[in-house]
Design a protein around this nucleic acid. Structure first.
Length: 434
RNA sequence: GUGGACGUAGCUCAGCUGGUAGAGUCCCGGGUUGUGAUCCCGGUUGUCGUGGGUUCGAGUCCCAUCGUCCACCCCA
Protein backbone atom coordinates (compact mmCIF):
# COMPACT_ATOMS: atom_id res chain seq x y z
CA UNK A 1 0.00 0.00 0.00
CA UNK A 2 1.28 3.43 -0.90
CA UNK A 3 -0.63 5.41 1.64
CA UNK A 4 1.82 8.26 1.39
CA UNK A 5 0.80 9.12 -2.14
CA UNK A 6 -1.69 11.96 -2.22
CA UNK A 7 -3.04 11.07 -5.63
CA UNK A 8 -4.23 7.66 -4.45
CA UNK A 9 -7.95 7.34 -4.07
CA UNK A 10 -9.33 7.13 -0.59
CA UNK A 11 -11.20 3.87 -0.29
CA UNK A 12 -14.56 3.59 1.38
CA UNK A 13 -14.68 1.71 4.65
CA UNK A 14 -15.31 -1.98 4.18
CA UNK A 15 -18.94 -2.96 4.61
CA UNK A 16 -20.17 0.64 4.58
CA UNK A 17 -22.14 1.51 1.47
CA UNK A 18 -23.31 4.58 -0.38
CA UNK A 19 -26.99 4.67 -1.24
CA UNK A 20 -27.01 6.20 -4.70
CA UNK A 21 -29.79 8.27 -6.29
CA UNK A 22 -30.72 5.29 -8.47
CA UNK A 23 -31.68 3.23 -5.41
CA UNK A 24 -32.89 5.93 -3.05
CA UNK A 25 -36.45 5.54 -4.33
CA UNK A 26 -36.78 2.11 -2.74
CA UNK A 27 -35.42 3.42 0.56
CA UNK A 28 -37.86 6.31 0.62
CA UNK A 29 -40.75 4.05 -0.29
CA UNK A 30 -39.96 1.76 2.64
CA UNK A 31 -39.30 4.58 5.10
CA UNK A 32 -42.46 6.43 4.19
CA UNK A 33 -44.63 3.31 4.35
CA UNK A 34 -43.12 2.32 7.71
CA UNK A 35 -43.68 5.75 9.21
CA UNK A 36 -47.27 5.93 8.01
CA UNK A 37 -48.19 2.44 9.19
CA UNK A 38 -46.53 3.01 12.57
CA UNK A 39 -48.32 6.30 13.06
CA UNK A 40 -51.60 4.63 12.13
CA UNK A 41 -51.03 2.23 15.05
CA UNK A 42 -50.22 5.06 17.44
CA UNK A 43 -46.46 4.74 17.56
CA UNK A 44 -44.27 7.82 18.03
CA UNK A 45 -40.80 8.43 16.74
CA UNK A 46 -37.86 8.71 19.11
CA UNK A 47 -34.26 9.50 18.17
CA UNK A 48 -31.35 8.43 20.33
CA UNK A 49 -27.57 8.73 19.93
CA UNK A 50 -25.58 6.42 17.71
CA UNK A 51 -22.99 6.17 20.46
CA UNK A 52 -23.57 4.85 23.97
CA UNK A 53 -21.41 3.68 26.81
CA UNK A 54 -20.07 0.23 26.08
CA UNK A 55 -21.48 -1.02 29.36
CA UNK A 56 -25.05 -0.49 28.12
CA UNK A 57 -24.71 -3.01 25.33
CA UNK A 58 -22.80 -5.50 27.46
CA UNK A 59 -25.55 -5.49 30.01
CA UNK A 60 -28.47 -5.42 27.57
CA UNK A 61 -27.34 -7.80 24.86
CA UNK A 62 -25.31 -10.14 27.04
CA UNK A 63 -21.60 -10.34 27.68
CA UNK A 64 -21.18 -13.73 26.02
CA UNK A 65 -23.07 -13.10 22.78
CA UNK A 66 -21.27 -12.86 19.45
CA UNK A 67 -22.42 -9.28 19.05
CA UNK A 68 -20.72 -8.15 22.24
CA UNK A 69 -17.75 -10.49 22.11
CA UNK A 70 -16.51 -9.73 18.63
CA UNK A 71 -18.73 -7.45 16.59
CA UNK A 72 -18.85 -4.10 18.37
CA UNK A 73 -17.17 -0.92 17.20
CA UNK A 74 -15.74 0.13 20.54
CA UNK A 75 -13.28 2.93 21.26
CA UNK A 76 -11.97 4.95 24.16
CA UNK A 77 -12.74 8.66 23.86
CA UNK A 78 -10.51 11.54 24.97
CA UNK A 79 -12.08 11.44 28.41
CA UNK A 80 -11.01 7.83 28.86
CA UNK A 81 -14.50 6.37 28.60
CA UNK A 82 -15.25 3.25 26.61
CA UNK A 83 -17.93 4.05 24.02
CA UNK A 84 -19.57 1.90 21.36
CA UNK A 85 -21.36 2.52 18.06
CA UNK A 86 -24.77 0.97 18.56
CA UNK A 87 -25.05 -2.58 17.21
CA UNK A 88 -28.85 -2.61 17.65
CA UNK A 89 -31.60 -0.19 18.56
CA UNK A 90 -33.48 -1.47 21.58
CA UNK A 91 -30.82 -0.90 24.24
CA UNK A 92 -30.45 2.80 23.47
CA UNK A 93 -34.19 3.41 23.41
CA UNK A 94 -34.66 1.66 26.77
CA UNK A 95 -31.79 3.68 28.21
CA UNK A 96 -33.47 6.86 26.96
CA UNK A 97 -36.74 5.92 28.69
CA UNK A 98 -34.87 5.35 31.94
CA UNK A 99 -32.69 8.48 31.64
CA UNK A 100 -35.68 10.69 30.98
CA UNK A 101 -37.85 9.26 33.74
CA UNK A 102 -40.51 8.07 31.33
CA UNK A 103 -41.27 4.71 32.90
CA UNK A 104 -43.16 5.15 36.12
CA UNK A 105 -46.58 3.66 35.45
CA UNK A 106 -46.37 4.80 31.86
CA UNK A 107 -46.63 2.98 28.58
CA UNK A 108 -44.89 3.88 25.38
CA UNK A 109 -45.22 2.83 21.78
CA UNK A 110 -42.10 4.01 19.99
CA UNK A 111 -40.16 3.57 16.81
CA UNK A 112 -36.64 4.55 15.92
CA UNK A 113 -34.87 4.42 12.56
CA UNK A 114 -31.21 4.70 11.74
CA UNK A 115 -27.79 3.21 11.24
CA UNK A 116 -26.39 0.31 13.26
CA UNK A 117 -22.82 -0.98 13.27
CA UNK A 118 -21.41 -4.47 13.54
CA UNK A 119 -17.87 -5.50 12.68
CA UNK A 120 -18.56 -8.65 10.65
CA UNK A 121 -17.37 -9.93 7.28
CA UNK A 122 -19.67 -8.29 4.74
CA UNK A 123 -21.90 -10.58 2.74
CA UNK A 124 -25.10 -10.38 0.72
CA UNK A 125 -27.60 -8.56 2.93
CA UNK A 126 -25.09 -8.04 5.69
CA UNK A 127 -23.02 -4.91 6.11
CA UNK A 128 -20.94 -3.24 8.79
CA UNK A 129 -23.11 -0.17 8.71
CA UNK A 130 -26.71 -1.18 8.15
CA UNK A 131 -30.07 0.40 8.78
CA UNK A 132 -33.02 -0.67 10.83
CA UNK A 133 -36.41 0.54 11.78
CA UNK A 134 -36.96 -0.71 15.29
CA UNK A 135 -40.31 -0.71 17.02
CA UNK A 136 -40.78 -0.93 20.78
CA UNK A 137 -43.87 -1.27 22.98
CA UNK A 138 -43.08 -0.75 26.66
CA UNK A 139 -45.38 -1.25 29.63
CA UNK A 140 -47.65 -3.82 28.00
CA UNK A 141 -47.84 -7.37 29.31
CA UNK A 142 -49.36 -8.87 26.23
CA UNK A 143 -50.18 -11.10 24.57
CA UNK A 144 -52.44 -8.58 22.81
CA UNK A 145 -49.52 -6.26 21.93
CA UNK A 146 -47.55 -9.24 20.70
CA UNK A 147 -50.32 -9.97 18.23
CA UNK A 148 -50.72 -6.35 17.23
CA UNK A 149 -47.02 -5.84 16.57
CA UNK A 150 -46.99 -8.82 14.25
CA UNK A 151 -50.15 -7.59 12.52
CA UNK A 152 -48.43 -4.24 12.03
CA UNK A 153 -45.52 -5.87 10.28
CA UNK A 154 -47.86 -7.97 8.14
CA UNK A 155 -49.68 -4.81 7.11
CA UNK A 156 -46.41 -3.17 6.12
CA UNK A 157 -45.53 -6.13 3.88
CA UNK A 158 -48.93 -5.88 2.21
CA UNK A 159 -48.46 -2.19 1.74
CA UNK A 160 -45.03 -2.70 0.17
CA UNK A 161 -46.30 -5.66 -1.90
CA UNK A 162 -43.71 -7.91 -0.29
CA UNK A 163 -44.90 -11.48 -0.57
CA UNK A 164 -41.87 -13.69 -0.21
CA UNK A 165 -41.80 -13.66 3.60
CA UNK A 166 -43.21 -16.06 6.13
CA UNK A 167 -43.65 -15.82 9.87
CA UNK A 168 -42.09 -18.11 12.45
CA UNK A 169 -42.78 -17.84 16.15
CA UNK A 170 -41.70 -19.47 19.36
CA UNK A 171 -41.74 -18.92 23.09
CA UNK A 172 -38.62 -18.90 25.22
CA UNK A 173 -40.58 -18.87 28.47
CA UNK A 174 -39.34 -17.00 31.50
CA UNK A 175 -35.67 -16.89 32.46
CA UNK A 176 -36.46 -19.46 35.17
CA UNK A 177 -38.16 -21.98 32.89
CA UNK A 178 -35.53 -21.44 30.25
CA UNK A 179 -32.80 -22.16 32.76
CA UNK A 180 -34.49 -25.41 33.78
CA UNK A 181 -34.88 -26.42 30.15
CA UNK A 182 -31.29 -25.50 29.39
CA UNK A 183 -30.08 -27.88 32.09
CA UNK A 184 -32.04 -30.74 30.57
CA UNK A 185 -30.75 -29.89 27.12
CA UNK A 186 -27.13 -29.74 28.24
CA UNK A 187 -27.57 -33.08 29.95
CA UNK A 188 -28.98 -34.58 26.76
CA UNK A 189 -26.24 -33.12 24.57
CA UNK A 190 -23.47 -34.21 26.87
CA UNK A 191 -24.86 -37.73 26.82
CA UNK A 192 -24.39 -37.68 23.03
CA UNK A 193 -21.17 -35.70 22.98
CA UNK A 194 -19.41 -38.01 20.49
CA UNK A 195 -22.09 -37.30 17.88
CA UNK A 196 -21.70 -33.53 18.09
CA UNK A 197 -19.77 -31.71 15.37
CA UNK A 198 -17.13 -29.15 16.25
CA UNK A 199 -19.54 -26.20 15.94
CA UNK A 200 -22.06 -27.78 18.25
CA UNK A 201 -19.45 -28.61 20.86
CA UNK A 202 -18.43 -24.98 20.87
CA UNK A 203 -22.03 -23.83 21.14
CA UNK A 204 -22.63 -26.28 23.97
CA UNK A 205 -20.13 -24.27 25.98
CA UNK A 206 -21.40 -20.79 25.12
CA UNK A 207 -25.08 -20.95 24.19
CA UNK A 208 -26.42 -24.52 24.23
CA UNK A 209 -29.81 -23.52 22.81
CA UNK A 210 -28.10 -22.61 19.57
CA UNK A 211 -27.03 -26.21 19.02
CA UNK A 212 -30.64 -26.77 17.97
CA UNK A 213 -30.07 -24.29 15.13
CA UNK A 214 -27.33 -26.35 13.47
CA UNK A 215 -27.56 -26.58 9.69
CA UNK A 216 -25.47 -29.74 9.57
CA UNK A 217 -27.74 -32.52 8.17
CA UNK A 218 -25.84 -35.11 10.17
CA UNK A 219 -27.05 -33.45 13.34
CA UNK A 220 -30.70 -33.57 12.38
CA UNK A 221 -31.67 -36.86 14.02
CA UNK A 222 -29.94 -35.90 17.23
CA UNK A 223 -31.64 -32.51 17.29
CA UNK A 224 -35.08 -33.90 16.58
CA UNK A 225 -34.79 -36.29 19.50
CA UNK A 226 -33.70 -33.51 21.86
CA UNK A 227 -36.00 -32.09 24.52
CA UNK A 228 -38.23 -29.36 23.07
CA UNK A 229 -38.31 -25.92 24.68
CA UNK A 230 -42.03 -25.40 24.17
CA UNK A 231 -42.73 -28.58 26.15
CA UNK A 232 -41.01 -27.07 29.18
CA UNK A 233 -42.73 -23.71 29.47
CA UNK A 234 -44.09 -22.53 32.78
CA UNK A 235 -47.92 -22.39 32.86
CA UNK A 236 -48.13 -18.59 32.41
CA UNK A 237 -45.78 -18.58 29.43
CA UNK A 238 -47.70 -21.50 27.98
CA UNK A 239 -50.97 -19.57 28.28
CA UNK A 240 -49.34 -16.47 26.84
CA UNK A 241 -48.09 -18.42 23.85
CA UNK A 242 -51.44 -20.09 23.23
CA UNK A 243 -53.18 -16.72 23.33
CA UNK A 244 -50.64 -15.36 20.85
CA UNK A 245 -51.32 -18.22 18.43
CA UNK A 246 -55.07 -17.81 18.82
CA UNK A 247 -54.78 -14.09 18.19
CA UNK A 248 -52.79 -14.58 15.00
CA UNK A 249 -55.28 -17.16 13.80
CA UNK A 250 -58.18 -14.83 14.52
CA UNK A 251 -56.51 -12.16 12.37
CA UNK A 252 -55.80 -14.63 9.59
CA UNK A 253 -52.03 -14.24 9.81
CA UNK A 254 -50.34 -17.50 8.82
CA UNK A 255 -47.45 -18.61 11.01
CA UNK A 256 -45.33 -21.61 11.78
CA UNK A 257 -44.21 -22.60 15.25
CA UNK A 258 -40.48 -23.18 15.15
CA UNK A 259 -39.39 -24.70 18.46
CA UNK A 260 -35.78 -24.16 17.44
CA UNK A 261 -36.15 -20.43 16.91
CA UNK A 262 -33.77 -18.93 19.47
CA UNK A 263 -32.86 -15.28 19.22
CA UNK A 264 -29.23 -14.31 19.37
CA UNK A 265 -29.58 -11.67 22.03
CA UNK A 266 -29.86 -12.61 25.67
CA UNK A 267 -32.63 -10.23 26.64
CA UNK A 268 -35.55 -12.04 25.02
CA UNK A 269 -38.19 -13.87 27.03
CA UNK A 270 -41.47 -15.56 26.07
CA UNK A 271 -42.57 -14.45 22.58
CA UNK A 272 -39.95 -14.42 19.83
CA UNK A 273 -40.66 -14.16 16.13
CA UNK A 274 -38.93 -13.81 12.83
CA UNK A 275 -40.07 -12.96 9.30
CA UNK A 276 -37.86 -14.92 6.94
CA UNK A 277 -37.47 -15.12 3.19
CA UNK A 278 -36.00 -17.60 0.73
CA UNK A 279 -35.07 -14.84 -1.70
CA UNK A 280 -31.97 -13.36 -0.13
CA UNK A 281 -29.39 -16.12 0.10
CA UNK A 282 -27.93 -16.95 3.47
CA UNK A 283 -29.28 -13.90 5.26
CA UNK A 284 -32.91 -14.94 5.50
CA UNK A 285 -34.20 -12.83 8.39
CA UNK A 286 -35.88 -9.66 7.21
CA UNK A 287 -37.51 -8.64 10.45
CA UNK A 288 -37.31 -10.14 13.88
CA UNK A 289 -37.92 -9.46 17.50
CA UNK A 290 -39.50 -10.59 20.69
CA UNK A 291 -40.50 -9.84 24.23
CA UNK A 292 -37.91 -8.51 26.68
CA UNK A 293 -39.67 -8.36 30.03
CA UNK A 294 -36.47 -8.40 32.08
CA UNK A 295 -34.41 -5.91 30.11
CA UNK A 296 -35.41 -2.63 31.69
CA UNK A 297 -34.86 -3.95 35.20
CA UNK A 298 -31.51 -5.26 34.08
CA UNK A 299 -30.55 -1.74 32.96
CA UNK A 300 -31.43 -0.26 36.34
CA UNK A 301 -34.95 0.91 35.50
CA UNK A 302 -38.18 0.08 37.23
CA UNK A 303 -39.15 -3.45 36.10
CA UNK A 304 -41.36 -2.94 33.03
CA UNK A 305 -42.40 -5.43 30.36
CA UNK A 306 -41.56 -4.72 26.76
CA UNK A 307 -41.65 -6.16 23.29
CA UNK A 308 -40.17 -5.02 20.02
CA UNK A 309 -38.77 -5.91 16.67
CA UNK A 310 -36.34 -4.58 14.11
CA UNK A 311 -36.45 -4.74 10.35
CA UNK A 312 -33.40 -4.48 8.13
CA UNK A 313 -33.84 -1.79 5.49
CA UNK A 314 -31.10 -3.12 3.18
CA UNK A 315 -32.78 -6.51 3.17
CA UNK A 316 -36.20 -5.04 2.47
CA UNK A 317 -34.73 -2.99 -0.36
CA UNK A 318 -33.16 -6.14 -1.80
CA UNK A 319 -36.42 -8.01 -1.45
CA UNK A 320 -38.41 -5.32 -3.20
CA UNK A 321 -35.97 -4.82 -6.05
CA UNK A 322 -36.22 -8.55 -6.85
CA UNK A 323 -39.75 -8.13 -8.13
CA UNK A 324 -39.69 -4.77 -9.83
CA UNK A 325 -37.15 -2.08 -9.18
CA UNK A 326 -39.11 1.13 -8.66
CA UNK A 327 -38.24 3.50 -11.46
CA UNK A 328 -36.38 6.57 -10.27
CA UNK A 329 -38.70 9.55 -10.24
CA UNK A 330 -38.14 12.03 -13.07
CA UNK A 331 -36.13 14.94 -11.80
CA UNK A 332 -38.14 17.56 -13.63
CA UNK A 333 -41.54 18.48 -15.07
CA UNK A 334 -40.15 21.23 -17.24
CA UNK A 335 -36.62 21.53 -18.63
CA UNK A 336 -35.70 25.05 -19.64
CA UNK A 337 -33.56 25.28 -22.77
CA UNK A 338 -31.77 28.58 -23.25
CA UNK A 339 -29.92 29.77 -26.31
CA UNK A 340 -27.93 32.94 -26.57
CA UNK A 341 -26.31 35.04 -23.90
CA UNK A 342 -29.33 37.19 -23.13
CA UNK A 343 -31.58 34.16 -22.88
CA UNK A 344 -29.15 32.34 -20.59
CA UNK A 345 -29.10 35.25 -18.19
CA UNK A 346 -32.84 35.75 -18.39
CA UNK A 347 -33.39 32.00 -17.88
CA UNK A 348 -32.27 32.21 -14.25
CA UNK A 349 -34.70 34.99 -13.54
CA UNK A 350 -37.60 33.36 -15.38
CA UNK A 351 -37.03 29.99 -13.69
CA UNK A 352 -37.27 31.65 -10.28
CA UNK A 353 -40.49 33.41 -11.29
CA UNK A 354 -41.99 30.15 -12.49
CA UNK A 355 -40.99 28.38 -9.26
CA UNK A 356 -42.79 31.15 -7.34
CA UNK A 357 -45.88 30.78 -9.50
CA UNK A 358 -45.96 26.95 -9.59
CA UNK A 359 -44.30 25.74 -6.37
CA UNK A 360 -45.39 22.11 -6.91
CA UNK A 361 -43.79 21.82 -10.33
CA UNK A 362 -40.17 20.88 -10.78
CA UNK A 363 -38.23 23.15 -13.12
CA UNK A 364 -34.77 22.25 -14.27
CA UNK A 365 -32.87 25.05 -15.93
CA UNK A 366 -30.12 24.16 -18.34
CA UNK A 367 -26.87 25.09 -16.65
CA UNK A 368 -23.39 25.22 -18.03
CA UNK A 369 -24.22 26.08 -21.63
CA UNK A 370 -24.18 23.62 -24.47
CA UNK A 371 -25.68 23.80 -27.91
CA UNK A 372 -29.29 23.05 -28.75
CA UNK A 373 -28.67 19.42 -29.49
CA UNK A 374 -26.96 18.86 -26.16
CA UNK A 375 -29.58 20.81 -24.26
CA UNK A 376 -32.41 18.80 -25.78
CA UNK A 377 -30.58 15.58 -25.00
CA UNK A 378 -30.35 16.66 -21.37
CA UNK A 379 -34.00 17.67 -21.42
CA UNK A 380 -34.91 14.21 -22.66
CA UNK A 381 -32.80 12.43 -20.04
CA UNK A 382 -34.20 14.55 -17.24
CA UNK A 383 -37.54 12.83 -17.77
CA UNK A 384 -39.29 16.18 -18.12
CA UNK A 385 -42.64 16.15 -19.88
CA UNK A 386 -42.08 19.56 -21.35
CA UNK A 387 -39.25 21.66 -22.71
CA UNK A 388 -39.48 25.42 -22.35
CA UNK A 389 -37.42 27.03 -25.08
CA UNK A 390 -35.98 30.46 -24.61
CA UNK A 391 -33.82 31.86 -27.36
CA UNK A 392 -32.84 35.37 -28.22
CA UNK A 393 -35.43 35.13 -30.96
CA UNK A 394 -38.27 34.32 -28.50
CA UNK A 395 -36.96 36.89 -26.07
CA UNK A 396 -37.07 39.56 -28.74
CA UNK A 397 -40.71 38.73 -29.34
CA UNK A 398 -41.54 38.41 -25.63
CA UNK A 399 -42.60 34.77 -25.79
CA UNK A 400 -41.46 31.31 -24.64
CA UNK A 401 -41.90 28.16 -26.71
CA UNK A 402 -43.29 24.97 -25.15
CA UNK A 403 -42.51 21.60 -26.67
CA UNK A 404 -44.00 18.36 -25.33
CA UNK A 405 -41.22 15.76 -25.07
CA UNK A 406 -43.25 12.63 -24.39
CA UNK A 407 -45.65 12.58 -27.30
CA UNK A 408 -45.92 13.74 -30.87
CA UNK A 409 -47.56 17.10 -30.50
CA UNK A 410 -46.84 20.45 -31.90
CA UNK A 411 -44.78 23.13 -30.26
CA UNK A 412 -46.65 26.18 -29.02
CA UNK A 413 -45.75 29.67 -27.93
CA UNK A 414 -46.99 31.79 -25.07
CA UNK A 415 -46.36 35.41 -24.09
CA UNK A 416 -43.94 35.49 -21.14
CA UNK A 417 -46.47 36.88 -18.63
CA UNK A 418 -48.87 33.97 -19.36
CA UNK A 419 -46.22 31.25 -19.23
CA UNK A 420 -47.21 29.74 -15.90
CA UNK A 421 -50.79 29.13 -17.04
CA UNK A 422 -49.61 27.83 -20.40
CA UNK A 423 -47.24 25.39 -18.68
CA UNK A 424 -50.06 24.06 -16.50
CA UNK A 425 -52.25 23.53 -19.54
CA UNK A 426 -49.46 21.81 -21.46
CA UNK A 427 -48.53 19.57 -18.52
CA UNK A 428 -52.17 18.58 -18.06
CA UNK A 429 -52.40 17.70 -21.74
CA UNK A 430 -49.15 15.72 -21.51
CA UNK A 431 -50.39 13.82 -18.46
CA UNK A 432 -53.45 12.62 -20.36
CA UNK A 433 -51.20 10.99 -22.94
CA UNK A 434 -49.09 8.98 -20.47
C1' G B 1 -11.79 -15.06 12.37
C1' U B 2 -12.10 -19.38 8.14
C1' G B 3 -12.89 -20.94 2.88
C1' G B 4 -13.79 -20.15 -2.52
C1' A B 5 -14.21 -16.93 -6.91
C1' C B 6 -12.80 -12.37 -8.94
C1' G B 7 -10.01 -7.22 -9.62
C1' U B 8 -8.32 -4.57 -17.53
C1' A B 9 -11.40 2.79 -19.92
C1' G B 10 -16.66 6.48 -15.77
C1' C B 11 -19.90 1.65 -16.58
C1' U B 12 -20.40 -3.74 -18.75
C1' C B 13 -16.72 -6.78 -20.47
C1' A B 14 -12.95 -9.23 -24.43
C1' G B 15 -7.67 -10.09 -24.45
C1' C B 16 -5.85 -17.68 -27.17
C1' U B 17 0.08 -21.74 -25.11
C1' G B 18 3.94 -14.57 -22.08
C1' G B 19 5.63 -10.19 -27.52
C1' U B 20 4.25 -3.04 -23.85
C1' A B 21 -4.13 -3.05 -24.81
C1' G B 22 -9.55 -3.57 -27.55
C1' A B 23 -15.30 -3.61 -28.08
C1' G B 24 -19.91 -1.79 -26.54
C1' U B 25 -21.87 2.05 -23.63
C1' C B 26 -21.32 6.93 -21.60
C1' C B 27 -19.54 11.88 -22.59
C1' C B 28 -18.19 15.81 -26.37
C1' G B 29 -18.41 17.77 -31.50
C1' G B 30 -20.42 17.48 -36.47
C1' G B 31 -24.24 15.76 -40.34
C1' U B 32 -29.35 20.05 -39.76
C1' U B 33 -25.43 28.47 -38.96
C1' G B 34 -32.44 26.96 -33.36
C1' U B 35 -35.01 21.24 -31.63
C1' G B 36 -34.38 15.25 -27.68
C1' A B 37 -34.83 8.58 -27.84
C1' U B 38 -33.15 6.45 -33.57
C1' C B 39 -29.28 6.80 -37.77
C1' C B 40 -24.30 8.33 -39.90
C1' C B 41 -19.19 10.52 -39.18
C1' G B 42 -15.36 12.04 -35.86
C1' G B 43 -12.98 12.71 -30.90
C1' U B 44 -11.31 12.11 -25.43
C1' U B 45 -10.68 8.36 -21.78
C1' G B 46 -6.36 3.36 -19.06
C1' U B 47 -0.19 4.05 -13.86
C1' C B 48 -4.31 -3.78 -16.88
C1' G B 49 -5.94 -3.00 -7.96
C1' U B 50 -0.87 -2.36 -5.45
C1' G B 51 4.24 -4.08 -4.41
C1' G B 52 7.87 -7.55 -5.54
C1' G B 53 9.84 -11.95 -8.35
C1' U B 54 10.86 -15.14 -12.92
C1' U B 55 12.00 -13.59 -18.13
C1' C B 56 15.39 -10.41 -23.50
C1' G B 57 10.14 -9.17 -22.67
C1' A B 58 4.44 -9.90 -17.86
C1' G B 59 -2.54 -7.73 -18.50
C1' U B 60 -1.02 -12.95 -19.19
C1' C B 61 3.35 -17.11 -14.93
C1' C B 62 4.87 -17.05 -9.28
C1' C B 63 4.65 -14.69 -4.25
C1' A B 64 2.73 -11.09 -1.10
C1' U B 65 -0.77 -7.36 -0.10
C1' C B 66 -5.33 -4.47 -0.51
C1' G B 67 -10.25 -4.62 -2.23
C1' U B 68 -15.03 -6.79 -4.04
C1' C B 69 -18.47 -10.79 -4.12
C1' C B 70 -20.37 -15.43 -2.20
C1' A B 71 -20.40 -19.01 1.69
C1' C B 72 -19.12 -20.61 7.03
C1' C B 73 -19.76 -18.39 11.95
C1' C B 74 -23.45 -14.99 13.48
C1' C B 75 -27.31 -11.82 12.41
C1' A B 76 -31.33 -7.06 10.41
Amino acid sequence: MREDKLSDQIQPVRGMNDVLPAEIGAWQTIETAAREVLEAYGFQEIRVPLVERTELFKRAIGEYTDVVEKEMYTFVDQGGESLTLRPEGTAGVMRALISNGMLRGQRHKLWCAGAMFRHERPQKGRYRQFHQVSVEAVGFNGPDVDVELIALAARLWRRLRITRVRLEINSLGTPQSRRAYREQLVEYLQAHYEQLDADSRRRLQGNPLRVLDSKNPEMRALIEAAPVLTDHLDPQSQAHFEALCAGLEALGIPFRINPRLVRGLDYYSRTVFEWITDALGAQDAVCSGGRYDGLIGQLGGEATPGIGFAMGIERLVALMSQDAAPAPAPSADVYIVVNGERAAAYGLELAERLRDALPDRRFELNLGGGNFKAQFRRADRSGAALALILGDDELARGVGALKPLRQEAGQSESPLPDLAAAIETALAAAAVHT
